[in-house]
């Protein structure tokens, strides 16, 4: 099907063309200004962070050769061979490492559970629709903010001095951080609930705890569970480095292997950590989808 367009005469077209150019120019100036600001900040922070591109390019080969080295045996009967040619030699400490990985997951699990329990108990006092007392609400919100802004490793460093080396400070550090992060999310969920069941409970003369048990919890539980699962996934990652400061789990062995240049061990540990994290990612994703679909099917 042939269609023909009739072109406007030039004198009528000119204003449109000019307006188009004007609109474009304004956008372009804005974009250039924005890029200029970003470039300026980049140069400034590059200077502050001692970025040295020559060093990077000079040593970039090292980065790749590092991966080459950790994938090659550097001692024993298989010197110079790729690590996967002899899995039993590569994964020589599998039993120990798996038990450490189990500890890491347990640290994440306990930290997540304790944090989730804390967040659950406090989140109702932090939501606008259930807690009329603005002063108390603000206090709980500030506590959550503090707990999630201070990184968990910092808590772990402090707790190690109070509780001694080992997984206990790791669990508590993760728990505190999780409480802050989940508390905020939980409170937001509670603020978005349907208020009618709450009014119904109040009308029957129910107190604060009864209202929460029968009007709020049934509405929010699946959301809470989904956020907790997501947090568990994040915490497994966090627990894998708790050992860096002596707070238990597989991190201790990893930092030792990296610092002492046990190359083959580094790759074995990294592989195990990546596998664990990916498996837990997949598992929690499944569970969360199951939760969501159960929620949608009445």
């Amino acid at each position: 099907m042939a269609t023909s367009f009739s072109r406007l005469p030039d004198d009528r077209l000119a204003p449109y063309a000019r307006a188009y150019d004007d609109a474009n120019r304004k956008k372009r100036v804005q974009a250039i200004l924005f890029l200029g600001i970003v470039a300026g900040l980049t140069l400034l922070s590059g200077a502050v962070a001692e970025v040295d591109l020559f060093k990077l390019f000079g040593n970039l080969g090292n980065f790749f050769s590092y991966f080459d080295r950790i994938l090659t045996f550097d001692s024993g009967p298989m010197v110079g061979r790729r690590v996967w040619t002899d899995p039993s030699e590569w994964l020589w400490g599998l039993g120990k490492w798996l038990s450490l990985l189990g500890d890491t997951i347990l640290i994440a699990y306990l930290g997540t559970m304790l944090g989730a329990i804390g967040a659950f108990l406090l989140c109702f006092s932090a939501s606008t629709n259930l807690m009329p007392n603005a002063w108390l609400r603000g206090l709980v919100k500030r506590v959550f903010e503090f707990c999630r802004t201070v990184p968990e490793i910092v808590f772990a460093l402090i707790f190690i001095i109070a509780f001694g080396l080992g997984p206990v400070p790791g669990v508590l550090a993760i728990a505190i951080h999780t409480m802050g992060a989940l508390g905020k999310l939980f409170a937001e969920v509670v603020e978005n609930i349907d208020m009618k069941p709450v009014e119904g409970c109040t009308a029957t003369g129910a107190g604060f705890s009864d209202t929460i048990r029968f009007a709020v919890v049934p509405q929010v539980l699946s959301n809470f569970a989904s956020y907790t699962l997501l947090r568990f996934e994040i915490n497994v990652r966090g627990a894998s480095v708790m050992g860096f400061v002596g707070a238990g789990g597989i991190g201790q062995d990893l930092i030792e292997a990296i610092r002492k240049f046990y190359y083959a061990d580094v790759s074995a540990l990294l592989l195990l950590i990546i596998l664990t994290v990916v498996l837990i990612d997949l598992g929690t994703e499944r569970l969360r989808h199951a939760l969501i679909s159960r929620e949608e099917r009445p």
């Binding site: 090292n62 990652r237 966090g238 480095v241 990893l254 930092i255 990296i258 610092r259 990294l270 596998l275």
Partner: peptide, 14 residues
């Protein structure tokens, strides 16, 4: 799957 701290240790080597 690898935490920022682990990447930091690896890049320090480079």
């Amino acid at each position: 799957g690898i935490d920022t701290l682990i990447w930091a240790l690896l890049w320090i080597n480079v």
